[in-house]
Design a protein around this nucleic acid. Structure first.
Lengths: 168, 168
DNA sequence: TTTTATTTTCAGAAATTATTGAAAGTTTAA
DNA sequence: TTAAACTTTCAATAATTTCTGAAAATAAAA
């Protein structure tokens, strides 16, 4: 396969995979495009390659910037804005994990904590419910903690420590 | 707050959280309902509590069974089917992780591997692309491996090993 | 058998989410 | 200043996903 075809295939495959896990197709494609691009791209470049509207490009690029995985970049002699995606995949993983933690895990913990505290009742059934909320909280907290370590870790550090750990 | 209200609040909150991370609202609600229920529920029970149609209950209950987190259960003297959700949250976490690995991570690895192999070109740019696919693969594989360990682990084992590990 | 209870399916309707495109807003250059 | 280049916004529309409800299929009881 020719390089350009492989790049396009990657971009489109990434987009359809993304929809399987609740991520907007276009957003995934824009990121994939920037990831395999050798130079910063303008909104026009993205519009043309992905055949999408200016508004759509703008929205999704801003969302990616908001996730901290795409940056604006100035190009000498050009007035318009250009965009780049960081090429370090471990950094990308850490950034996405950090955001998902903030957006998806932490709100869950808050809700569970509140629910546990709000039940006045002291029946056995109420105690069971509180235990259930507590268990959900506790597993979520454990996962959250693990992800925290991963975010702070260096790829090799994490890998080698894991290897050590699992051999015990 | 009264116990029944807290349960309903949990069920509805869980549903709306689920939509934030790409999971069908009703599916999350049905699971939450079964989780906090003290007894097996029939399709009619679920329809009534969540105010949804029979078809919708059927579809989502089957999806939950497919995910391995809800089971059919027979109730003596009753002809219809009843459903229960496992109450062990650590087991639930492991099961969900296992399925997500299979549905979301493994197909990604396949795609990346294929793309890397399909590029004939040997230009520097092509090598960069292959490296990028390789990096994506490698991080995904690492994460996949970590999740594998988590799936096989006992909650306390994992927690204590992590604690040990992060203190290094 | 035949009848009755229950589950499943699936076409159409409803709800939700994503996209367009043009107008409004902003920034830079002349 | 004013004009041109560019970005952002957002109402209307399109696409996608979810849900309903009734009919078909299946299973148990009579």
């Amino acid at each position: 396969m020719k390089l350009e075809d492989a790049k396009l295939k990657y971009i489109h495959t990434w987009g359809s995979l993304a929809t399987n896990w609740g991520i907007n197709k276009t957003m995934a494609q824009v990121h994939a495009l920037l990831l395999v691009s050798t130079k910063p791209l303008s909104a026009d470049d993205i519009m043309e390659t992905l055949k999408i509207s200016r508004g759509n490009v703008n929205m999704n690029v801003r969302a990616l910037i908001d996730w901290g995985i795409v940056n604006k970049e100035f190009v000498v002699g050009e007035r318009k804005e250009f965009f780049v995606a960081g090429k370090d995949i471990w950094e990308l993983f850490k950034q996405v994990t950090k955001e998902r933690k903030k957006r998806e895990i932490e709100p869950v913990l808050k809700v569970l904590e509140d629910l546990k505290n709000d039940v006045e009742d002291n029946s056995e059934e109420a105690e069971d419910f509180k235990k259930m909320m507590g268990d959900l909280s506790s597993v979520t907290t454990t996962v959250n903690g693990i992800l925290d370590k991963a975010i702070k870790a260096d790829e090799h550090w994490l890998l080698s420590n894991f290897t050590k750990m699992i051999k015990k």
